[in-house]
Amino acid sequence: MADIQDEAIQQGMDSFVATFGRVPENFQLLAEHAPGAFAGYGLMRSFVMRDHGDGGALDLKTKELIFALLDTLAGQTTGAKNHAAAAMRLGLTLPELAEGLVQVMMVGGITTWNLTGAAVMKHCRDIEG
């Protein structure tokens, strides 16, 4: 069982490094104190974050945009910024991001824009800068 858990943890770590260049601190903390939970998350993440060439149905840019939009809806500003920036590195444009953020606002209300969406848009505007 430990070998399976260790492999799943490694897959999760590798997935973060491949997409963000690092394992975010909160996930390092999860891996340290709840390795079984991180192992499960790592397996899900390594499954979802596959590009077309690795068997993924959606391209990584789209997946990163979806995560940015979902994080915006959930009020998770840091995650939304990280995923939006990753999507931009993969070719996401500011008009595409703005359109997606407006969709989030249509579902979640203006508060999603005021609490998270605007910060994500500013962050990505600054990156494009």
Score class of each variant (00 low, 15 high):
Asp59Trp: 01
Ala68Lys: 09
Pro24Leu: 03
Ala31Asp: 07
Leu58Ala: 13
Val48Cys: 11
Ala18His: 10
Asp14Gly: 08
Phe16Pro: 01
Ala31Thr: 06
Glu64Tyr: 03
Gln10Val: 05
Met44Cys: 10
Asn26Glu: 11
Ile9Tyr: 00
Phe27Asn: 05
Ser15Thr: 04
Met13His: 14
Met13Gly: 06
Asp59Ile: 06
Lys61Cys: 08
Glu64Trp: 09
Glu25Phe: 04
Asp51Phe: 09
Phe67Ser: 14
Lys61Ile: 01
Ser46Asn: 05
Lys61Leu: 03
Gln11Lys: 15
Thr19Ile: 15
Gly12Leu: 04
Glu32Ala: 15
Met49Asp: 09
Ala39Pro: 02
Ile66Val: 15
Phe20Asn: 08
Ile66Arg: 13
Glu64Asp: 06
Leu30Glu: 08
Arg50Cys: 07
Ala34Thr: 13
Ser15Lys: 05
Pro35Phe: 00
Phe27Gly: 09
Gln11Ala: 11
Glu32Val: 06
Leu73Arg: 12
Ala57Met: 14
Glu32Ile: 05
Glu25Ala: 15
Glu64Met: 13
Thr62Leu: 10
Ile66Cys: 12
Phe16His: 07
Asp59Glu: 09
Gln11Pro: 09
Pro35Met: 03
Arg45Lys: 14
Gly40Met: 11
Gly55Tyr: 06
Gly53Asn: 14
Phe27His: 12
Leu70Asp: 02
Leu29Trp: 03
Ala31Glu: 07
Leu65Pro: 10
Leu70Thr: 13
Lys63His: 03
Leu60Tyr: 04
Phe67Gln: 11
Asp54Asn: 09
Ala74Tyr: 01
Leu29Thr: 15
His52Phe: 12
